[in-house]
């Protein structure tokens, strides 16, 4: 876990594309908030691996959001059930229900639909927001944070050693 956090911090503090980090975080949220063994999560995995996105950010977000999902499941259930039993949407659901592909997605389960739609609605604004936060963090906060006493203490910690070690490994042992 420490290694994962360190890796994420390193990426955050590097010049890596903020979009790659924010979208990975959002994909992690999508996979974490929704039931794990579902078809759409295969799509999430494909996107994560096919596009140059940050895997550490994805895993970290997945772990955090999976925990959060236990608390939010009742909300997803009511949201999903309300949509599935809404008279105005019944035409849409009936047409999806006739498709084998959509049946495989399990869209007619209240928690799956509720959580997927909730995550999907949150995806774009959150990705944009996270991207802005990452940029602002790098521009304004990183330098200040580096100078704080807390950061000085952190630099003496095990986590920082891991953090530094990752950089050393990536650059081929530091010397080379």
């Amino acid at each position: 876990m420490l290694r994962l956090i360190a890796r994420f911090l390193r990426i955050l503090n590097s010049e890596a594309d903020p979009w790659a980090i924010s979208i990975a975080l959002c994909l992690g949220m999508l996979a974490g908030l929704t039931p794990f063994y579902t078809l759409h999560n295969l799509g999430v995995l494909l996107i994560l691996l096919l596009f140059r996105l940050n895997i550490s950010a994805f895993i970290l977000s997945l772990i955090l959001c999976s925990g959060l999902a236990y608390l939010l499941d009742p909300l997803f259930h009511y949201f999903g059930l309300a949509l599935l039993t809404s008279g105005s949407l019944s035409g849409l659901w009936i047409s999806l229900y006739d498709s084998t592909f959509w049946r495989l997605t399990g869209f007619n389960n209240s928690i799956i639909l509720g959580s997927v739609l909730f995550s999907a609605l949150l995806f774009a604004p959150l990705a944009l927001l996270l991207k802005i936060i990452i940029i602002k963090y790098r521009e304004h906060i990183l330098a200040v944070v580096n100078r704080t006493r807390l950061m000085t203490a952190f630099k003496a910690s095990k986590l920082y050693r891991i953090y530094s070690g990752l950089g050393t490994l990536r650059t081929g042992g530091g010397a080379g």
């Binding site: 008279g87 009936i94 389960n109």
Partner: peptide, 19 residues
């Protein structure tokens, strides 16, 4: 309405069946 709600055990939500 047009849907039929089938209850599952807790934490698995409910499955709604359409025509």
């Amino acid at each position: 309405g047009n849907a039929e709600v089938i209850r599952h055990p807790r934490k698995r939500g409910v499955t709604v069946r359409f025509k």
